[in-house]
Design a protein around this nucleic acid. Structure first.
Lengths: 174, 174
DNA sequence: GAGGATGTTTAGTGAGCGCTACAAAAATAC
DNA sequence: GTATTTTTGTAGCGCTCACTAAACATCCTC
C-alpha cells in the first residue's frame, strides 16, 4: 500500500513489492493472484483507514457544512507527503496508468466515495446535493494533486478553509 | 503532444511516437535527442496554445476577479475529453511518472504557471496574492483530474462558477 | 522413517522499454 | 558523373516488465 501510494500503480514492480513483503514472485502470485489483486486489497485497506477523510470527518458529527469543511481540513492534514507518500491513493494511485484492471478498481472506489458524499448530503435535505458532492470531490482531487506536487500542509489548509467557507456560503449549508 | 496529453508521459513509447510522426526511432533521436526532448517541445507548444487557460482569460481583460473566474470557466470548457485527451498536459502529463527528467520539466512548467498567476494578482494590488493564486491552481488541478476521470463540461462549469464566485467573495476581488 | 500435500525457490518466459551501431539510400558538392 | 556528406532504415543493444514451469524444501499423517 505504501509503495502504491508513494509512486503510483505502474511505477511499482512486482519484484519490488515481493522483496518488500519478504517473499519471491511465485509466492506473491500464490497469495494475491496478480499485481492488481494486491492493489485491490491495498485500496480496501486505505479506504478503511486514514485515507477515508470523509468518514473521519463524518464521525465527529455536526451539520452538513461542518462535516464537509472538516473533510477538506482532514485532507489538508493527511495529504502532504509523509514517508514519501502524498495525496490520496484512491484519487491518484492509478492516474496515467496503462493497466485497465487497476484503473477500473480505482475508478470504482472514486465513484463509491463520491456517491457516499452525495447520499450524505442528500439525506440532510440539501438541494443540489450532486453539485455539492462534485464540489467537494473536485476540491479533494485538487488537494491530492497539489500534495503530490509538493504542497505543504499550510497551503492545503488555507485552501481547505477557503473552499469550506465557500461551500457553506454558496450552498447555504448549516 | 496529443499522445502525451491523452495517456501521460510514461504510457507512450518512443516506437509509437515515431510511427505517429511517420519516422523511425533513429530519426526521432536525431530530431529530438530523447523522449524527454520531444516532451519538452510538446509542453511548450501546449502552453503556447489552447492549454494556457489563464493567458486566454487574461487576454479578454477585466478586473482580477473576472479574469480568474474566466480562467476557471475556460478550463471547464477545454479540459473535458476531446480526441481522447482530457485535463491539462502541464498539470497531469507526468503524474506518477517514473522519469525524473520529464517530471522536472513538468514541475517547472507548473511552477511558472502559478508564478504568472500570482504576479498578475499581486500586480493589481490584491492582498494575499499567494493565497489567491494557490486557490486557482488547486482548483485547476482538481478540474484537470476530474476531467481525466471522465467529468463532463457541465460538471466542470458548475464547479468553475461556484469556485469563481467563491474567489471573488472570499478575497473581495473586483 | 515413508508418502503425500503444501509452499517456496531458482530460473526463466516472451514482450516491451529507451536508445543506438551500422549499413543502405538519398541528397549535395565538385 | 563520381565522391562525399547527410539522412534514413534494419536490426538489435541491455534492461525491466508481469508472470510462471519445474525443481526443491518443509511439514503433517501414518
Amino acid at each position: 500500500m505504501k509503495l502504491f501510494h508513494a509512486r503510483g500503480y505502474d511505477a511499482v514492480g512486482v519484484a519490488e513489492l515481493s522483496s518488500e513483503l519478504g517473499i519471491k514472485p511465485p509466492s506473491f502470485y500464490a497469495a494475491f493472484g496478480s499485481k492488481a489483486g494486491l492493489f485491490e486489497r491495498a485500496l480496501q485497506r486505505y479506504a478503511a483507514g486514514e485515507g477515508n477523510v470523509f468518514a473521519h470527518a463524518q464521525a465527529t458529527g455536526g451539520n452538513v457544512g461542518a462535516v464537509l469543511e472538516r473533510t477538506l481540513l482532514r485532507a489538508a492534514h493527511v495529504y502532504p507527503r509523509r514517508d514519501g507518500a502524498a495525496g490520496c491513493l484512491v484519487l491518484d494511485g492509478t492516474r496515467n496508468s496503462a493497466d485497465p484492471e487497476a484503473s477500473a478498481l480505482s475508478a470504482a472506489a472514486r465513484k463509491a466515495s463520491c456517491a457516499t458524499i452525495r447520499d450524505f448530503v442528500a439525506a440532510h435535505a440539501v438541494v443540489r446535493a450532486e453539485e455539492v458532492a462534485d464540489f467537494v470531490m473536485i476540491a479533494l482531487l485538487g488537494m491530492s494533486a497539489a500534495a503530490r506536487d509538493g504542497a505543504d500542509e499550510t497551503t492545503l489548509r488555507t485552501f481547505a478553509e477557503n473552499a469550506g467557507r465557500a461551500l457553506r456560503r454558496e450552498f447555504g449549508l448549516e
